[in-house]
Every structure is written in C-alpha cells, then in structure tokens.
Write a protein that binds this DNA or RNA. Structure first.
Lengths: 190, 190
DNA sequence: GTCTATAATTCGATAGAC
DNA sequence: GTCTATCGAATTATAGAC
C-alpha cells in the first residue's frame, strides 16, 4: 500500500499549509484558514497530522539541493552558491515558512539549524582550507544568506528587494566566497 | 507638567514589554504577562497605551546611535560599525524585540525599514564612492548585520552563537567594509 | 489611579453522526 | 473518509466600582 486514496488531499493540505505559514508565520496561520485554502474540512487536518505542530513539521520538510561543487572552479563557489540559494528560495515557499516560524518556535528553529549544519556544513568542509573551521564557515554563510532573505522577502527593505538576481550574486558572491575559502587575515582591497 | 506621577509605572511597563516582546515575539507576548512582570494591573497597560500595537510601538523606539565616523580611518569603518552593532544589540532588548515582531507584523517591519534607511543610509552616503549607491550599500550592510543577529540571538546557530566578539568583527568587518566603500568589480583575494 | 468583572473573539482540539 | 457541533482555553478589550 504505497499510495493511499487520501494522498491528493494530504498534498493539498501541505501546499496550503506552506503558503499560509510562509505568509503569516506559525501563530497567525490558523488550521481553519489552511483547511479553507485546501478546500477541505479543518478536522481533516487534525486527523492527518495530529496537531498544528505536526502539520508544520510535515510541511517544512526541506532539502537545499546544494549543487555538486566538483565541477565548479573553487574560486566560483561563492557565486554559484549564492545563485543557487536565490533560486531555491524563490521557487519554494518552504524556506520562507521555516524562517518566519523559526523566529518564535523552537521546533522550526531546530529544523533550520539542522538544515544548515547538516547540508551546508559538509560542503564547507570540502572547500575550507582547514576542515576544523567548517562549522564556523558554514555558519557565516548562513548569516549572510538568511540575512539577505530576511531583508528581501520578509522585511522587504526596498534597496534589497529591488536588486536584480545578478546584482545580488555580484555583491554577495565574494562575501560567501571569503567565508568559505578566504583567509581571515587577507582583507579585501577597499 | 513635564513629569507625571505615572512616569515610573509607564517606564516599568515599557521595560517589561521590551523583555517579553524580545523573548516571545509579538503574538506570544501577552499583555497579561507583561503587566505581571511590571507588577501592575493589565488594565493599566490598556489605559496608557490603548492597545497591544500601541504598547509595542512605544516599547520599540530605537536609536542606533551610530558613531561619528569623522574620527575613524575610512578603511576601518567596517570593523568599527560591526563592533558598534554587536555592542548595541547586546546591551538592549529593543532590537531583538523589533526583529522578532517584524517577521510577522507589518508595523514593526516598517519601523525596522525606517531605522535602517534613516540612520544607516546617511552614514553610507558619506562613505560611499558614489552617493547614489548609498541606499543599496546600506541595505547590504543591513542584510549582513541582521542576518548575523538572526543566527546568533534568535536561531542560536551554535558556531555563530559561540563566536567571540573580536572574531565576529574580524569576519564581518571586511564584508561590511566592502559593502560600504568597495568597488563591485574588486573581488577579494581568495 | 487602580482594580474587578466580564464581554466578545478566536482558535486548537475532540466527539460522534453519517 | 467527511462533516457538524461544540468544548475548553486563552486573549484582547471594555465598563464601571472604588
């Protein structure tokens, strides 16, 4: 029994949940509104996912799908990564839902920590001059990428929200590159 | 009548509000809990601030107190600014309250936009090679500083939360420096 | 100024018919 | 599987006594 008759309904619920959680955050997104969007009864949500936290957990499964850096020139890793992040962020509501929820809920915060440590960490470990620095380097990349997403998609700071994608890559790429592979003592030319 | 007998009470309410909003976010921080912390009756909060939004607005007044960069070598602006931000963030709950609330409330989001545009923008205008680029440069600085605060104080990503202040300045300083004064085409050495 | 009492909503969650 | 009805809890906000 790999497929159930209710799979379509469950998928509709998750899609609506991702949209609502992304747009409103965890508290303000209500089970009632999610059910209305999915055109099903609110009690179905409880039946399938137990409670609101269970629904969020199911809706917030996420894979960064980081590109294989084997075919990328080491010096281009920063730009490639920034471009990938922007694409990943704009094509899917999940990261936005996760970010909005993580600010007030411990569960989603832990999920974000797991995603960045578990998926970005290994990439940093392969690129960093000293593998022992990988966690810090991955963390620094997270500060810049999450900060950019925060300002662009959540706070909508006009100058940041208005950047074209290639402008964003041009500005953030070197930053991420330095966090991944740069020497702490090698300061950029002013 | 520049002072009122109720000023002490009002100040106690605002201090408690900042703590609760910073720790719990806008929705989960309740007027009841804030009043309990301030050891006054919940109805006093309504009397003084009208409603929950009015209370938040009063509690979230904030001045970045950016240092006068006149006495700083232009090349040190990034590090000085990063150090100042960290200090400002750790000594006051207001920015944390503002960030947590801004993720789900439009009012606080607008407040953050105003703070960064109105206070960081002018500084960027004086330091940027081309004043026309000042808004974008200030916005980029915001992405890095807010992203760092998000990862360190809200999400508590271990590698970021564990950084010493001077380590943070050493990593972020050059990034902010480049956003403020760097040439887009001058990439840092890898 | 301060407090009690309560109105008015809203929401998560449950019980149970069909 | 689907829906109705509703419970129980929590919250903002108001009215009014003292």
């Amino acid at each position: 029994m790999t497929t159930r008759r209710s799979d379509a309904t469950r998928a509709a619920i998750l899609a609506a949940a991702r949209e609502r959680f992304a747009a409103d955050g965890f508290e303000r997104a209500t089970i009632r509104s999610i059910a209305a969007d999915a055109r099903i009864d609110p009690s179905m949500v409880m039946r399938y996912y137990g409670n609101k936290e269970g629904l969020f957990a199911a809706a917030a499964e996420f894979d960064l799908r980081l590109p294989d850096m084997a075919e990328v020139t080491p010096g281009q890793a920063g730009s490639v990564l920034v471009g990938h992040f922007l694409q990943r962020w704009e094509g899917d509501d999940t990261l936005l839902a996760l970010l909005r929820a993580a600010v007030t809920q411990e569960g989603p915060a832990e999920r974000i920590r797991a995603i960045f440590a578990g998926q970005l960490g290994p990439l940093a470990a392969r690129l960093a001059p000293d593998p022992a620095q990988a966690p810090v380097r991955a963390g620094l990349v997270a500060t810049q990428m999450l900060g950019f997403a925060l300002c662009r998609y959540v706070l909508r700071l006009p100058p940041v929200a208005g950047l074209e994608r290639d402008e964003a890559v041009a500005w953030l790429g070197p930053t991420v590159q330095r966090y991944l592979t740069g020497d702490l003592r090698a300061l950029p030319r002013s």
